[in-house]
């Protein structure tokens, strides 16, 4: 497993645990109210599990297992993948700030960063979605 995929998968696992923890708190709070503020964590529960867990894991595993090129860099330019990972996590961080601070501007910034992450990652992976080894140099 390449270093990028190790980082992506481990970050995804951390978001998975954080998202599951918030989800458990919300469900417990529904049945046995603990604190009125807990329900406001719902957007973070969704964000951590959809973007932090599922999308990030897809980035990490896709980079690892998609067909490789014949020539180096065999997984495409790793810098693009790292930029995508950075943008994705910055986006999730911005949405976390939005949830904590109540400032809607952070939501907009977060979504822009997440769109950027997906565009950069798609560009990185695009040519590796191929039927057989083509020997295309990147």
């Amino acid at each position: 497993m390449p270093r990028f995929s190790v980082w992506g998968t481990r970050l995804a696992l951390l978001y998975f645990l954080a998202g599951f923890t918030i989800g458990a708190l919300i469900l417990i709070n529904k049945a046995a109210p603990l604190h009125p503020a807990i329900w406001s964590l719902l957007p973070l529960h969704i964000e951590f599990l959809l973007m932090g867990w599922i999308v990030q894991l897809v980035f990490a595993v896709g980079y690892w297992i998609f067909p490789r090129f014949k020539f180096e860099p065999k997984r495409g330019r790793p810098g693009f993948a790292w930029v995508a990972l950075g943008l994705l996590n910055a986006g999730i961080g911005s949405l976390t700030l939005a949830s904590v601070s109540g400032q809607p501007a952070w939501v907009l910034i977060g979504r822009v960063l997440e769109v950027g992450a997906v565009v950069v990652f798609a560009a990185q992976l695009w040519l590796r979605a191929k039927p057989t080894e083509t020997g295309v140099k990147v």
Binding site: L13, F16, L17, F20, G23, A24, L25, I28, A31
Partner: peptide, 20 residues
């Protein structure tokens, strides 16, 4: 049903923790 929901939350959280 309150208790069942709390137990269900704890069981799923434990599953997530052990998976990680």
């Amino acid at each position: 049903w309150r208790t069942a929901l709390v137990v269900s939350a704890v069981l799923q959280w434990l599953a997530g923790l052990l998976f990680v």
